[in-house]
Simulated scan of single mutants.
Amino acid sequence: MLDTDTIRQTEMPEEMRFLFDQYPRDSWDAHPGFKEKTRHWLGAHQMFRRVAERVRLDTESLLDRGMELEDYAGRLSHYGGNLVGNLHGHHGWEDRSYFPELSAADPRFDAGLEVLEQDHADLDQVLDDFTRTANRLIKLSDLDEVQAREEAGQVHATAATIEAFLKRHLSDEEELAVPIILHHRLRG
């Protein structure tokens, strides 16, 4: 299990902001270099934020007794599996394809790449912890409701960690990558 205190809590390092002031977030949509591929990538990030929030909110509903355990277990299986599987796939694609493209276009990207890759490694550990705990709760939902509800506290803590992690990491990633894409007219 990853010690969540070791996960980066700080804002994006200044060396990662080299083009962000020139291409602030509120100007992206209007930029002629902002193409469909970039919109899809940002859309995937929005989906991850929403699904992580959904898992946390559902768990809070279970803990507050606003949702039946059987319903929660099904939703946790669906949304939790969706979140974990798609994040692993997305980050693998970024590491193998997307980040090398950005690095080749602008070597200054490498200053932030190390930070983002460490984030991906840390997130993988958190997702593994979440998967183990969520799977245990789902199994217990058929065997022992009291124990399953006790396990929900750990699922909630890990889901909240994932949600906070994604909020910071995805924003940092976007604010590093999109200005490079716009500046070099990539992904057209």
Rank of each mutant, 00 (worst) to 15 (best):
D58N: 05
L102Q: 04
S97G: 01
V84S: 05
N135W: 03
A164R: 12
T59L: 02
P179F: 06
A52R: 03
W41D: 01
T158V: 05
R185E: 02
Q22H: 12
R49G: 00
L42Q: 06
I180R: 07
P107W: 00
D29N: 08
A157D: 13
E101D: 13
M47E: 04
R39V: 01
G85Q: 09
L137A: 01
L83Q: 09
R136G: 00
S27W: 13
N82L: 15
L170F: 11
H31M: 11
G66P: 01
D110M: 05
E163P: 04
A177N: 00
L113I: 00
E151K: 08
R25M: 01
G112A: 03
D124A: 15
L116H: 07
L137H: 03
H183D: 14
L42V: 10
M47R: 15
R54V: 00
L76F: 06
I180F: 04
D122R: 10
D5P: 01
D106V: 02
T161C: 14
V155P: 03
D129M: 14
D21K: 09
L116E: 03
E145D: 15
E163G: 14
M16N: 02
R25S: 01
L69G: 01
G74N: 12
E101G: 07
S27Q: 13
E114H: 08
A152L: 07
W41H: 06
